[in-house]
Design a binder for these strands. Structure first.
Length: 345
DNA sequence: ATGCATGAGAT
DNA sequence: TCTCATGCATA
């Protein structure tokens, strides 16, 4: 039916989590709610550092390799989706009995006193009050003013579909030009242009009375070779410019095409069939509690790319699965590279 | 709107 | 094992 969508006034949850992490279930519906009317911006990074954080970080830094001798074991089997479905061994992580943890540390020497046996000397160094993170940028906005992607990934590859039967997204196609303009120009690669387009897009989309999710699924109806549907998330990110520059450029022509089509369709009073494929197993989402998250952020500030060993150590200290920690760092790195507020601006 | 996750391709 | 593009679940 025409149940456009019901933007409901979001309801906030004053609930705070104490546990290290919790896995929440889904209710039953997938209600899209309008969100924060006043985005808190991801810029309060300058206020995040204080003693709490520092002590946290230090404590973490204290995680020592000595702890491995006890129980170096920790299966990091990701739970994955499924509820009753066969637990396909979608092992995505290399789980090994910690190779060199025991004998690791190339330069395992005695540090000085201090309480920490150092997860890493450098870390301790950086975590010292002296250096202080006050000068460092937070995990959100990149303090990295210069990362130039010198490569041009295939852009979008199809992903997984555990057991879905949805005409998913864009598959293997690279018909889109997404290379940065180097001398020649391939359309509009200007951040400025993208920004205005994203804004216009959103406005026109709303005018059409279509939700982000609608747009996502409607893309499949465009029948553009290599283009399937996209999720609400992606559409949302596009509008809010929280995608990588390359990604934005790749998606722009597609969304632009949809917009044209949609406006034309509307003129003709045509309705485009939407398809929903509900009823699938809901997967659970790990939720890292604030304290642990702060620790991770503290580490990230000094070492965005911890080694596997360090990740393992951190994971143990925080009592989180190694994979969870690894993914957290990966995601954090990705965030830094997003368009908005990125160095390119 | 965002956090945590998967997966293909690049290293 | 990381990066990148994306998605599901959730606040």
């Amino acid at each position: 039916m025409m149940s456009m969508n019901s933007k409901q006034p979001f309801g906030m949850h004053p609930i705070l989590h104490e546990p290290k992490y919790t896995t929440l279930h889904s209710s039953t519906e997938a209600i899209r709610r309008a969100c924060l009317p006043t985005p808190p911006l991801q810029g309060n990074i300058f206020t995040g550092f204080d003693e709490t954080l520092l002590s946290r970080a230090e404590a973490l830094a204290a995680v020592d390799i000595v702890s491995q001798k006890s129980h170096p074991f920790k299966p990091d089997v990701t739970y994955h989706t499924m509820t009753s479905v066969s637990c396909t061994p979608t092992s995505s992580s290399v789980h090994l009995p910690h190779p060199s943890v025991l004998t690791s540390h190339p330069h395992h020497h005695h540090h000085h006193h201090q309480t920490a046996q150092g997860l890493d000397g450098e870390l301790l160094d950086h975590l010292n009050p002296g250096l202080s993170l006050s000068g460092m940028a937070g995990p959100e906005v990149g303090s990295t003013p210069s990362h130039a992607h010198a490569h041009m990934p295939g852009m979008n590859h199809m992903s997984h579909h555990p057991h879905h039967h949805q005409p998913m997204n864009i598959s293997h196609s690279h018909a889109l030009s997404a290379h940065m303009g180097l001398g020649a120009n391939d359309g509009e690669a200007d951040p400025r242009e993208l920004e205005s387009f994203a804004e216009r897009f959103k406005q026109r989309r709303i005018k059409l009375g279509v939700t982000q999710a609608d747009v996502g699924s409607a893309l499949a109806n465009l029948k553009i070779p290599g283009v399937g549907c996209l999720s609400q998330s992606t559409i949302c990110r596009f509008e809010s410019l929280t995608l990588s520059h390359n990604n934005m450029i790749a998606l722009k022509p597609i969304l632009e095409a949809w917009l044209d089509e949609a406006e034309r369709a509307q003129r003709e009073k045509m309705t485009k069939p939407e398809l929903f494929s509900g009823g699938d197993r809901k997967r659970k989402r790990t939720s890292i509690a604030a304290p642990e998250k702060r620790s991770l952020e503290a580490y990230f500030a000094v070492q965005p790319r911890p080694s596997s060993e360090k990740i393992a150590a951190i994971a143990e200290k925080l009592d989180l699965k190694k994979n969870v920690v690894r993914v957290w760092f990966c995601n954090q790195r990705q965030k830094q590279k997003r368009m908005k507020f990125s160095a390119t601006h």
